[in-house]
Design a protein around this nucleic acid. Sequence first.
DNA 1: TCCACCATGTAATGCGTTACATGATTGA
DNA 2: TCAATCATGTAACGCATTACATGGTGGA
Lengths: 177, 177
Amino acid sequence: MSLPHALLTSLAERPGSGSELASRFDRSIGYFWQATHQQIYRELARLEANGWVRSVAIEGARGRKRRYDLLPQGLEELARWTAEPMDPPAIRDELMVRLRAESVIGPSALAQRLTEMLSLHRQKLAAYQAIERRDFVSSSSDRRRRLQHLVLKAGVDFERQRIAFYEDALSILEDDG
Amino acid sequence: MSLPHALLTSLAERPGSGSELASRFDRSIGYFWQATHQQIYRELARLEANGWVRSVAIEGARGRKRRYDLLPQGLEELARWTAEPMDPPAIRDELMVRLRAESVIGPSALAQRLTEMLSLHRQKLAAYQAIERRDFVSSSSDRRRRLQHLVLKAGVDFERQRIAFYEDALSILEDDG
DNA sequence: TCCACCATGTAATGCGTTACATGATTGA
DNA sequence: TCAATCATGTAACGCATTACATGGTGGA
């Protein structure tokens, strides 16, 4: 259960409102942990009830906007969680199920779906590589930057592997598809 | 929502009881889609209510064991689903959140956790490679076998990438950890 | 003034997880 | 005969998802 800690992490990087956090989950943090604004508002309320964050109304802002700040207890909780024992990641890959189904029931339109996915992943890869070129040109960096770069490279590698997999799968499916 | 279709796929490969399906989800299918026996029994009841499978009591078996068979309508549903438009996979990687947290809050015991995970993934990789050597020695095969091999290779590649990632992460964390 | 949008929130539903329950069978 | 185990199932809870609601702000 990482959503509360993903929020604490994001607030440790920089305070912000619910909608700002939601937009971070559409970009940086969201590359490896997604959340909708409903989840985020619900969770922020809990974090505040736990005394891990506090919020103040932002005067002069649109609507009822509030800024959330990490409290010392929240930082403690984040440190505790980071070092906690960890389960291996749960893999749930619908594509593999579909390929296995196809291998039993015979050719289908799955190849077209793969072609669509392939172009999506190529776009994602290009986006990650653009970030890498823009933000991580210098090779020598401090610990923090090296860790950030590492996480980005994991995204790049994942997309690369995914693309290679789609290409292999298509070459099999299209042999007789 | 792939659990019902993972079950249909497994039953298309071979009929079986709830407990047999549960044990398949601890092995082959479970490598990319996990399910507990509670989920499986609940879902089997729904599949039967939908007319996609039927079940008969197995005489002479332990307890109330029932065999589930795929019905023609279930096969149709499986084919329909296989070719359906597909969303990109949802990535939820707790490790990346933790690394990002560490990059903000500074050194922790996360390196020890990574060492533990590393050995787990090395075991998984070895298990996959053993299956590959045992079941996929011949390079020339039919479509069905090639697809099965492809899915297994995806598992191998995933574990390999994961291992490389842990090693990189450890080398950064241990510089000063 | 009024419409579109922003920021926050409520409600309903469903899958996934955990704990517990029941009946039957095997083996010591 | 009795304990362990197998096979199936029930119940409760939580996160994730989707649809919808509210109120305020800015621009046409």
